[in-house]
Design a protein around this nucleic acid. Structure first.
Lengths: 223, 223
DNA sequence: AGTAGCATACTTGTATGGTAGTGTGGTAGC
DNA sequence: GCTACCACACTACCATACAAGTATGCTACT
């Protein structure tokens, strides 16, 4: 991705660029960066960089100390858990709504998505599985008219991505996850509110694993 | 509030100033404003105004059309409902946690807060009741270590404030609300998870009233 | 009258200059 | 050697200049 073929303003370009660098751990937690440094690197002026910094500050991905400097925010496990908690509460609620009424077209989208998940699982394409999983949950949000909620959750949830990156050897049990996805669609079809909520609860509780080994291995990256 | 005695940067000052104007309907939905106009009014340069505009855009309180202009975002009832939904899900979840374990000091804070609510109710001080109610729910968030969740909810919930302002004759049943607050603290003390969640659910469902008369009365303010 | 086209006055986006606060390293004085 | 002080480099913050896109209204031509 470079500036010329990026659709959107320079500000958005810079924001996405830095954001990706932070989430991929190219910029490790604690790394000091300055407006000038980035503007020189990306060959843009300080203004769009500064505006990107402000948005990154909102995300708590960057910490700015006025007149002193800026650095990539350290990972805060409390923050990660709060994001997971909010996501679970929101999606269980969406599931409840979905089991009451849900557009047929979205349900079909979800079914097709699950088939793609199975294919990706065969190919062991983790990246594709990650994106398909995202889309699956997005369909649920769209079908229950809660897209803004989904966006808020997504934005808060970025911090878990850095953890996932750190624990590269973490093998997700995709067979189970895909089974749960299937059970969700079934619950929606059968309007089985109790089953749907229960499965979603279990599904999102799986994300709650013991992160202390990571903190022990990379102490400098954590608060 | 003017610039000299405001603690914080010019950017934050401008942001708060415009935000208050929008939420109080001083700036009505749809009103066209420009960076230059605001910077002249507040006697600051365009830079902090522009940065405030960006943050207001995040809040969906302002809509910016590049090279064309900016205007106060119209009220979107879907947005309001999504905020209420997310809040209900989050706070019911917090209640569940609180009924499992909750710091004694916070519980005492909540009890004292309720007594203040009763006093404010006697004096019919709506403004005080509003703030006390806010604090009450904040205590719950703090006691369950979910302060970030609370902030996210608060930020998303601003749109309901414009509705509240429009429906000035809306009389809230504070007696019921305060009773529910008491029942919440009781549930926490008795660790009665089921009762706590049920009360919180009812409590936050009360915010779901029919808003179509307002839309009929102020059609220009709505999407 | 109606319309194409251009000048103009806006808008926001980007670049750059200057300001004030902060940390650091060196130096003079003890 | 140690400390107080100061010059300097660096930061983010704010102000301003310039660029580029858009709406509007006038004018000239059909």
């Amino acid at each position: 991705m470079n500036r010329t073929n990026f659709k959107g303003s320079t500000r958005e370009y810079v924001y996405e660029k830095i954001r990706e660098s932070i989430l991929s751990l190219e910029l490790t937690p604690g790394t000091v960066i300055s407006e000038k440094e980035i503007s020189d690197d990306l060959e843009v002026s300080r203004t769009p960089v500064r505006e990107a910094f402000l948005k990154l500050t909102e995300d708590e991905l960057l910490t700015v100390l006025p007149q002193r400097g800026s650095f990539v925010t350290l990972i805060d496990l409390d923050h990660v858990e709060e994001a997971r908690f909010l996501r679970e509460q929101a999606e269980v609620g969406m599931m409840k709504l979905a089991c009451h009424s849900f557009p047929e077209s979205k349900r079909l989208d979800m079914l097709a998505n699950i088939e793609k998940q199975k294919l990706a699982k065969e190919k062991e394409d983790e990246q594709a599985l990650f994106l398909l999983d995202r889309d699956f949950h997005l369909f649920l949000a769209e079908g229950t008219n809660k897209k803004r909620v989904w966006q808020v959750i997504q934005r808060m949830d970025v911090h878990s991505q850095r953890l996932r990156k750190l624990s590269m050897n973490l093998k997700l049990n995709w067979n189970l996850l895909i089974e749960q996805h299937e059970a969700m669609v079934q619950a929606i079809e059968q309007k089985d509110e109790r089953a749907g909520m229960e499965i979603m609860h279990e599904h999102l509780t799986l994300l709650q694993y013991d992160q202390s080994p990571l903190k022990a291995e990379f102490p400098d990256y954590f608060q």
